[in-house]
Protein backbone atom coordinates (compact mmCIF):
# COMPACT_ATOMS: atom_id res chain seq x y z
CA UNK A 1 0.00 0.00 0.00
CA UNK A 2 1.78 3.12 -1.16
CA UNK A 3 1.36 6.30 0.78
CA UNK A 4 1.03 9.35 -1.31
CA UNK A 5 2.09 12.81 -0.33
CA UNK A 6 1.63 16.12 -2.04
CA UNK A 7 4.33 18.69 -2.34
CA UNK A 8 4.33 22.23 -3.49
CA UNK A 9 7.45 22.51 -5.64
CA UNK A 10 9.74 25.27 -6.86
CA UNK A 11 13.09 25.76 -8.52
CA UNK A 12 16.23 27.15 -7.02
CA UNK A 13 19.30 27.30 -9.20
CA UNK A 14 17.89 24.59 -11.48
CA UNK A 15 17.30 22.27 -8.50
CA UNK A 16 13.77 21.13 -7.72
CA UNK A 17 12.68 21.55 -4.13
CA UNK A 18 9.40 20.85 -2.42
CA UNK A 19 7.59 21.60 0.82
CA UNK A 20 4.54 19.82 2.16
CA UNK A 21 1.51 21.29 0.54
CA UNK A 22 -0.28 21.60 3.86
CA UNK A 23 2.34 24.06 5.08
CA UNK A 24 1.97 26.38 2.13
CA UNK A 25 -0.48 29.23 2.59
CA UNK A 26 -0.15 30.66 -0.91
CA UNK A 27 2.16 31.28 -3.81
CA UNK A 28 2.38 34.77 -5.30
CA UNK A 29 4.51 36.63 -7.77
CA UNK A 30 7.28 39.05 -6.93
CA UNK A 31 6.32 41.65 -4.35
CA UNK A 32 8.05 44.92 -3.58
CA UNK A 33 10.13 44.46 -0.47
CA UNK A 34 11.28 46.87 2.20
CA UNK A 35 14.78 46.00 3.23
CA UNK A 36 15.61 45.64 6.90
CA UNK A 37 19.00 47.07 7.86
CA UNK A 38 20.93 45.16 10.49
CA UNK A 39 19.06 41.95 9.75
CA UNK A 40 20.82 38.77 8.67
CA UNK A 41 21.61 38.54 4.96
CA UNK A 42 19.03 35.79 4.55
CA UNK A 43 16.25 38.28 5.33
CA UNK A 44 15.70 40.07 2.08
CA UNK A 45 12.94 42.28 3.38
CA UNK A 46 9.32 42.70 4.39
CA UNK A 47 6.31 42.37 2.12
CA UNK A 48 2.75 43.57 2.49
CA UNK A 49 0.48 40.56 2.21
CA UNK A 50 -3.07 41.89 2.28
CA UNK A 51 -2.34 44.03 5.31
CA UNK A 52 -0.08 41.49 7.01
CA UNK A 53 3.60 42.20 7.23
CA UNK A 54 5.49 39.10 6.24
CA UNK A 55 9.24 38.50 6.43
CA UNK A 56 10.79 37.30 3.18
CA UNK A 57 13.75 34.92 3.30
CA UNK A 58 16.00 34.36 0.34
CA UNK A 59 16.16 30.59 -0.01
CA UNK A 60 19.26 30.69 -2.17
CA UNK A 61 21.10 32.40 0.65
CA UNK A 62 19.55 30.12 3.20
CA UNK A 63 20.79 27.05 1.38
CA UNK A 64 24.08 28.75 0.60
CA UNK A 65 23.59 28.48 -3.13
CA UNK A 66 24.87 31.05 -5.58
CA UNK A 67 23.26 34.46 -5.72
CA UNK A 68 20.34 35.06 -8.00
CA UNK A 69 21.01 37.20 -11.07
CA UNK A 70 20.07 40.78 -10.42
CA UNK A 71 17.44 40.95 -13.17
CA UNK A 72 15.63 37.86 -12.01
CA UNK A 73 12.71 38.66 -9.77
CA UNK A 74 11.98 35.92 -7.25
CA UNK A 75 8.58 34.42 -6.56
CA UNK A 76 7.07 34.10 -3.11
CA UNK A 77 6.13 30.82 -1.48
CA UNK A 78 4.34 31.82 1.70
CA UNK A 79 4.49 29.14 4.35
CA UNK A 80 2.69 29.20 7.61
CA UNK A 81 4.37 27.96 10.77
CA UNK A 82 1.94 28.20 13.61
CA UNK A 83 0.60 31.73 13.73
CA UNK A 84 3.38 33.34 11.76
CA UNK A 85 3.65 33.44 7.98
CA UNK A 86 7.03 33.62 6.29
CA UNK A 87 7.71 34.02 2.58
CA UNK A 88 10.41 31.98 0.88
CA UNK A 89 11.93 33.58 -2.20
CA UNK A 90 12.43 31.12 -5.01
CA UNK A 91 13.39 31.31 -8.67
CA UNK A 92 10.34 29.74 -10.24
CA UNK A 93 7.23 27.95 -9.10
CA UNK A 94 6.71 24.30 -10.00
CA UNK A 95 3.58 22.19 -9.91
CA UNK A 96 2.00 20.45 -6.98
CA UNK A 97 3.36 16.94 -7.23
CA UNK A 98 2.13 13.73 -5.79
CA UNK A 99 4.85 11.36 -4.76
CA UNK A 100 4.90 7.87 -3.35
CA UNK A 101 6.66 7.06 -0.15
CA UNK A 102 8.64 4.22 -1.60
CA UNK A 103 10.50 6.57 -3.89
CA UNK A 104 11.85 8.44 -0.89
CA UNK A 105 15.47 8.29 0.14
CA UNK A 106 17.34 9.87 2.99
CA UNK A 107 20.06 12.37 2.16
CA UNK A 108 23.49 10.93 1.49
CA UNK A 109 26.20 11.13 4.14
CA UNK A 110 28.27 13.27 1.83
CA UNK A 111 25.81 16.12 1.94
CA UNK A 112 27.52 18.88 3.82
CA UNK A 113 26.76 22.04 5.68
CA UNK A 114 23.49 23.77 5.96
CA UNK A 115 21.91 21.65 3.24
CA UNK A 116 22.23 18.61 5.44
CA UNK A 117 20.13 20.20 8.16
CA UNK A 118 17.45 21.51 5.90
CA UNK A 119 17.00 18.77 3.35
CA UNK A 120 15.11 15.86 4.71
CA UNK A 121 15.66 13.69 1.70
CA UNK A 122 14.67 13.21 -1.93
CA UNK A 123 11.95 11.60 -3.96
CA UNK A 124 13.13 9.91 -7.11
CA UNK A 125 10.92 11.21 -9.87
CA UNK A 126 10.94 10.00 -13.43
CA UNK A 127 13.71 12.20 -14.64
CA UNK A 128 14.90 14.16 -11.70
CA UNK A 129 15.07 14.39 -7.93
CA UNK A 130 12.66 16.28 -5.73
CA UNK A 131 14.51 17.58 -2.70
CA UNK A 132 12.32 17.88 0.35
CA UNK A 133 12.87 20.82 2.65
CA UNK A 134 12.25 20.79 6.37
CA UNK A 135 10.00 23.81 6.47
CA UNK A 136 10.35 24.55 10.15
CA UNK A 137 14.11 24.43 10.21
CA UNK A 138 14.31 26.45 7.03
CA UNK A 139 12.19 29.18 8.47
CA UNK A 140 13.89 29.28 11.86
CA UNK A 141 17.10 30.86 10.72
CA UNK A 142 19.03 32.59 13.48
CA UNK A 143 16.05 32.60 15.80
Amino acid sequence: MAEVKQFSTFYLDKLLFGVEVGKVQEVIRYQDMTRVPLASAVVTGLINLRGQIVTALDLRRRLELSERAAERLPMNVVVRNGEEAVSLLVDEIGDVLEVEDETFEAPPETLQGVARELIRGAYKLKDRLLLVLDTEKTVNVGV
Binding site: V36, P37, L38, A39, V43, L46, N48, I53, E84, V143
Partner: peptide, 19 residues
Amino acid sequence: VKPLGKHLKGITAFSGATI
Protein backbone atom coordinates in the same frame (compact mmCIF):
# COMPACT_ATOMS: atom_id res chain seq x y z
CA VAL B 1 2.00 49.26 14.77
CA LYS B 2 2.49 45.73 13.56
CA PRO B 3 4.89 43.50 15.41
CA LEU B 4 8.03 42.27 13.69
CA GLY B 5 8.39 38.62 12.92
CA LYS B 6 10.63 36.43 15.03
CA HIS B 7 13.61 36.89 12.72
CA LEU B 8 13.66 40.60 13.38
CA LYS B 9 12.46 40.88 16.94
CA GLY B 10 16.00 40.99 18.26
CA ILE B 11 17.06 44.08 16.34
CA THR B 12 17.11 46.86 18.89
CA ALA B 13 16.87 49.64 16.34
CA PHE B 14 13.33 48.71 15.35
CA SER B 15 10.22 48.37 17.47
CA GLY B 16 7.81 47.25 14.78
CA ALA B 17 6.64 47.88 11.25
CA THR B 18 3.71 49.54 9.56
CA ILE B 19 2.02 49.69 6.20
